[in-house]
Design a protein around this nucleic acid. Structure first.
Length: 560
RNA sequence: GCCGCUAUCGUCUAACGGUUAGGACAUAGGAUUCUCAAUCCUACAAUCGGGGUUCGAUUCCCCGUGGCGGUACCA
C-alpha cells in the first residue's frame, strides 16, 4: 500500500511538468447555460473510413432528440486507436451524415476545421486534458502505473481459466496494484512501457441500481476490474475519455449503442473516482439482419452486407428522406401511423420519444425500406424527381447527367407520366431506377431488342395491326378517344373488347384488346411492360412514334 | 465458460392485468373498360417452453431455452 505522500510523488514522477489542474479545465469549459429540458447530446463515431448505416441511425437520433428539445447536437471524433486510423476519416463521416441531412451545432466540419467553444472535438487533440485528469486520479491513489507485459497477461488469463475463475486484471491478480514506490521507480528507470490503470475498489458481490432511459431500472454488479485508463502510448481508452469528454462538453444524456451497456459499472466507478457527476444513460439496441447462412439474428456487418455501408444508399440513389424515415420508424414504430395521419408533413415535425425505443435489436429490412422509398418518391413532383435524379447522376452516371441537362423539359415530361391524378405510379425505389425509365425515350439508350410476343399474336396479325394503326393514329386524340380507336381496331381485326365475352368464347376471337395494345407497346417501347402507353406516346411525339412503328414492322418482316 | 440485456405473425411492431391478440411490410388469391406498377378486397400468419401469483397473465415473479452483447493497451 502506498501512502498519500507517495501517491503525490508518483503523480509527479509520471507526469512531470504537467501543471494544468482540473480546476483550470472547469474554468476553461464552464457549465453551459441551458433551460430545463434542453438536451445536449453527442454523437461520437470513430473514423474508420467506413460509415455504417447504424451510425446514421445513432447520429440521426442524437441530432433529432437534441434539436426537438431546443438543445445542441455535438459531433466528437473518437480516434484514440491509432491502429484503425484512416486518412480523411473525419471528412468522410461529416459528409456522409450531411448526405442524410444530419448536421451538428458543434464539432469538426472536416479534417481541418471545427466549430464550438468546448473543443477540440477530436480526441487525439485532447491528450493534454486526459493527462490532467490522469495525474489527478493517480495523486488521489485511484489509479496506478502497471508494467505488466502482454505475455504475462496471457499467462494470467490461462491460469484463471484453468482455475475456473473470472478472467481479467483485478484483485489479487492485479500484480502492480499495490506495488511500492521503489518497485515502480525501478521499472520507470529501466524505461519499461506502462499503462495507467484504475485502482478499483468495487466488489462484484455488491450491486447498485441505475435508470437507463431505454431499459428502465436495472440492477448491476459493481466493477472490480483495474481497467486501463491511459494506454502506453499516452492515449486514453474509451472508458477514460468518455466521462471526461462528456462532462467537459456539458452533455446531459449519454446516448450510445447497447454494446456499451456491460461497461456501465466501470464507467460509474470512473466517474466517481474522477469526482465527476454521473451523466444519465440511454442505451439503444443495434440494427441487426438475418444471416444468410444460418437463421440467426446478427448485427448488420460491414463485411458481409453491402447495405451496411451508407455508400450503398448513396451510390444507388436511395432518397435520403425515405432512408431517414425508415430509420425513424425503426426507432419509434408509431412513426408509420403518424405518417398516415400527416402525409404532407416533413419528417422533421415528427417527435421522437426516447421511451418508445424498442429494447431488443431490430432487423434491418431492405424490402420495407424500398416500399417506403417508393411511397416517398411517388409524392414528389416531376420537377423534383428530375432534380434528385440529376443530383445522383452527377456523381454516378455522367451519360445520364448529360442527357438530363440537355433535355430538361423532355425529361420532366417523362417523369410526369402517371404522376398526377388518381393513379400515381409507384415504381421508382431509388433514383438509379430513373435510368430504366429514361431508356424508353432516348434512341441512344433504347436497347433495340424486342421482347417476343409471337405466342400471343402471330407475325402476320402483328403486321396487320400496326399498319392499320398507323392509319388511325392521331396526336390530337385524348386518352379516351385514343382507346376507343384501339377498341374499334380490335373489333375490326377480330379481337374481343370484352374480357368476359372473350373468356366465354375464346375460339371466336384472335385475342383481346389487351393483345392489340401489347403489340403497340412492344413496337413502341420494345418491352412487354411499360407505363401508360397513351402517355408514353404523347411524350415521345408523333415523329418518334411513327419511326418506331416502322422500325418494328421492318424488324418483324425480316424475321424468319 | 462467466456476466449482462432481451423474447408477440417471415419482418417492424401495437395491446391501464380483462381485445375475436390490432396495424404495416412481405407472401398468395381476387377485382380494376391496355401490360407493369399502383389502388381496393380477401386469405395466410404470432404471444418461446415450464412453473407460479391472480377470478383472470402477452402483460407481474421464478426456472429453462433461444437471440444479442460484453468478457482488449478496439471503440
Amino acid at each position: 500500500m502506498r501512502t498519500a505522500e507517495e501517491n503525490q510523488e508518483l503523480a509527479n514522477l509520471l507526469f512531470p511538468n504537467h501543471n494544468t489542474s482540473v480546476e483550470d479545465l472547469f474554468e476553461r469549459y464552464p457549465k453551459r447555460n441551458i433551460e430545463k429540458g434542453e438536451m445536449i447530446l453527442r454523437f461520437a463515431p470513430s473514423p474508420t473510413g467506413f460509415l455504417h448505416i447504424g451510425s446514421v441511425y445513432t447520429g440521426m437520433i442524437c441530432t433529432k432528440l437534441s434539436k426537438q428539445s431546443g438543445g445542441l447536437a455535438i459531433l466528437r471524433i473518437e480516434d484514440t486507436d491509432k491502429k484503425r486510423e484512416v486518412e480523411d476519416g473525419v471528412t468522410m463521416i461529416v459528409n456522409g451524415l450531411k448526405g442524410f441531412g444530419i448536421s451538428f451545432d458543434e464539432g469538426p466540419s472536416d479534417d481541418k476545421n471545427q466549430k464550438g467553444e468546448y473543443g477540440p472535438y477530436i480526441q487525439s487533440q485532447r491528450l493534454d486534458i486526459y493527462k490532467t485528469f490522469a495525474k489527478e486520479i493517480v495523486k488521489k491513489g485511484n489509479a496506478y502505473p502497471c508494467f505488466i507485459s502482454e505475455e504475462e497477461l496471457i499467462s494470467i488469463r490461462k491460469e484463471q481459466k484453468s482455475l475456473g475463475v473470472r478472467t481479467g486484471y483485478y484483485g489479487k491478480w492485479a500484480k502492480w496494484r499495490d506495488a511500492s514506490l521503489e518497485e515502480i521507480k525501478k521499472e520507470l528507470d529501466k524505461g519499461t512501457p506502462y499503462v495507467i490503470r484504475l485502482y478499483s475498489t468495487g466488489s462484484i458481490d455488491n450491486t447498485f441500481e441505475m435508470i437507463d432511459l431505454i431499459k428502465g431500472k436495472v440492477t448491476l454488479r459493481e466493477n472490480d476490474m483495474d481497467a486501463v485508463l491511459l494506454k502506453s502510448d499516452g492515449f486514453p481508452t474509451y472508458h477514460f475519455a468518455h466521462p471526461i469528454d462528456d462532462t467537459l462538453m456539458g452533455i446531459t444524456l449519454v446516448t450510445r449503442g447497447d454494446e456499451w451497456f456491460p461497461s456501465v459499472p466501470l464507467h460509474f466507478e470512473i466517474f466517481q473516482k474522477l469526482g465527476l457527476e454521473q451523466i444519465p444513460y440511454a442505451h439503444f439496441s443495434p440494427l441487426m439482419k438475418v444471416d444468410h447462412e444460418g437463421k440467426s439474428k446478427r448485427k448488420l456487418s460491414k463485411r458481409k452486407d453491402p447495405e451496411a455501408d451508407v455508400s450503398f444508399y448513396i451510390n444507388h440513389g436511395y432518397p435520403k428522406e425515405a432512408v431517414i424515415e425508415y430509420l425513424l420508424n425503426l426507432a419509434n414504430s408509431n412513426f408509420s401511423d403518424w405518417r398516415i395521419q400527416n402525409p404532407d408533413k416533413s419528417h422533421n415535425e415528427f417527435v421522437l420519444k426516447i421511451e418508445k425505443f424498442n429494447k431488443a435489436g431490430s432487423l434491418f429490412d431492405i424490402v420495407k425500406l424500398s416500399d417506403m422509398c417508393k411511397d416517398y418518391i411517388s409524392t414528389l413532383s416531376a420537377q423534383q424527381v428530375y432534380e434528385n435524379c440529376l443530383e445522383w447522376a452527377k456523381l454516378h452516371d455522367s451519360k445520364i447527367e448529360k442527357l438530363l441537362l440537355e433535355n430538361k423539359e423532355y425529361c420532366i415530361s417523362i417523369f410526369n407520366i402517371e404522376r398526377s391524378g388518381a393513379k400515381i405510379r409507384k415504381d421508382i425505389v431509388k433514383f438509379e431506377d430513373c435510368k430504366e425509365q429514361l431508356a424508353l425515350f432516348f434512341d441512344e439508350l433504347f436497347i433495340g431488342e424486342y421482347e417476343d410476343i409471337l405466342e400471343m399474336v402471330s407475325k402476320e396479325i402483328q403486321k396487320e395491326i400496326l399498319s392499320e394503326y398507323k392509319k388511325i393514329y392521331s396526336t390530337k386524340d385524348n386518352e379516351v378517344e385514343w382507346f376507343e380507336k384501339v377498341k374499334e381496331l380490335s373489333k375490326k381485326l377480330g379481337f374481343s373488347t370484352d374480357r368476359k365475352e372473350y373468356e366465354a368464347n375464346k375460339e371466336k376471337f384472335k385475342g383481346t384488346v389487351g393483345d392489340v395494345a401489347m403489340v403497340l407497346r412492344v413496337a413502341i417501347t420494345g418491352r412487354t411492360k411499360s407505363p401508360n402507353l397513351y402517355q408514353v406516346m404523347l411524350v415521345l411525339g408523333e415523329e418518334k412514334v411513327m419511326q418506331r412503328l416502322d422500325k418494328y414492322i421492318s424488324y418483324i418482316s425480316k424475321m424468319v
